Simulated assay, not measured.
Amino acid sequence: LLSSLGVNVNFAPVCDIAGDEDDFMYSRSLGQDAETTSEFIRQTVSLYSENSMGCVLKHFPGYGDNPDTHKGIALDERELTEFETRDFLPFSAGIQEGAECVLVSHNIVSCLDKTVPASLSEEWHSLLRGELGFTGCIITDDLSMGAIRKCCDIQAAAIQAIKAGNDLLCCTDYGIQLPAVIEAVRTGEISEERIEESVRRILAWKLRLGLLPEDAVLS
C-alpha cells in the first residue's frame, strides 16, 4: 500500500515497551515484554527490507511510562541499567536486522543527561552510535512539540539537534528552523564537515532504498 502511494519510508516500527494501559505510549506500542517486542521488531524490519521500504525505529532510548511530550516536558529518572536490560533490546534487534534510521524522543532521560531532551543530547547520540553500534541516520522527533518549546527556543533547538548528532530534523516549523541551521553553518557555529557527515549517511540510505542510480559513488 505504501509503495503504491509513492511512500518510501515509514516512521515505524515503535520499539517502546509499555505494559500499562494508562501509559501514553501503550496504544502505539506492541504492549508486550522486551523479548516479545524485540522479536516483533526483528521480523518487522526484515519485512521492510524485503520490500525495499525504509523504516524508523522509535522512540529511542525507550519511552517507558512517560507523559505526552507533544504537550510538555517529560522527565525520565530510570537507571541506565533498566534501559540496557530492557528498553534497548528492541532497538538492538532492529539495528542488527539492518534498520537504517532511529528516531530519538524528547524525554529528558536523566541517567545520561539531566539538562536537555535526549533528541538534543550529545551523550545519548554517542551511546546510540557507540554502545548500540548504530551507523545509520538519526532523526529527531518533531522539534515543534511542547517538550521542546518549553525547554528552549525552537531556532536554538534545531541548531543543537544538528550539533548533538542528528542527521535529519523532523520539524513542523521548518520555515523558521531551516534558516536557523543555514545561518549557523554560515557563521561557523555548525561546521560544513558536520553537515557533510550527515549528508553521506542520508545518501547511503537512499542508495540502499534504490532512490539513487546504482552506479552512484559515495566518498
Rank of each mutant, 00 (worst) to 15 (best):
E197L: 15
D65E: 08
Y48G: 06
E189F: 11
T36P: 01
E123Y: 04
Q160S: 14
T69D: 04
N10H: 13
H125P: 01
A158L: 13
A147I: 03
A18L: 07
E122M: 06
E50G: 03
Y48D: 02
R208A: 05
P13F: 08
R42P: 07
A118D: 08
I17Q: 03
S119D: 07
L127Q: 04
E197G: 02
S126V: 09
W205N: 09
I202K: 06
I182V: 15
P117D: 09
G19K: 03
T85W: 07
D215I: 08
A164H: 03
T187N: 14
G188Y: 03
C151L: 07
R149F: 10
L103W: 14
L103N: 14
K58P: 04
S198L: 09
A147K: 01
L47I: 05
H59K: 03
E82V: 05
D65Y: 10
D215E: 06
V9T: 13
A204G: 03
G72K: 06
E123L: 08
V116M: 11
V199M: 12
T172W: 09
I176R: 15
S105N: 12
A184R: 02
A204E: 05
I95W: 03
G94L: 00
G165L: 01
T115H: 12
I139G: 04
F40E: 05
N66E: 09
Y63E: 08
N10K: 13
F40K: 00
E82F: 10
R149V: 12
E84A: 00
I148W: 12
A161K: 08
S105A: 15
R86V: 10
K58D: 00
D167W: 00
I95Y: 02
C152D: 10
D33A: 08
V104S: 12
H70N: 00
Q96L: 10
D33T: 04
G130W: 02
R194G: 04
A161Y: 13
L5S: 09
S4L: 15
Q177G: 12
T135N: 12
A158F: 15
I95Q: 04
F134R: 03
S219I: 06
Y174T: 12
H70D: 00
E79R: 10
G98E: 15
T85G: 02
A34C: 00
D113A: 04
E79Y: 14
G133H: 00
L127G: 06
D215W: 03
S38A: 11
Y174I: 11
C137M: 13
F60E: 01
L89F: 09
D16C: 00
R86Q: 14
I73D: 00
E122N: 10
D167S: 05
E35S: 12
E50I: 05
Q155D: 14
V102F: 12
Q177N: 15
E82S: 13
R28M: 12
P179Q: 14
E35L: 10
D23N: 14
G62F: 02
C111K: 01
V185N: 05
L1A: 13
F91L: 02
L218I: 14
C152A: 14
E39D: 12
A18E: 04
Q155L: 15
G98N: 14
T115L: 12
T44I: 01
Q32Y: 13
Y63I: 09
R186E: 12
K163N: 07
F83Y: 11
G19H: 07
D65I: 01
I182N: 14
P90Y: 07
L218S: 07
L80G: 09
E35V: 11
A184V: 03
L103G: 13
C55F: 10
I195K: 06
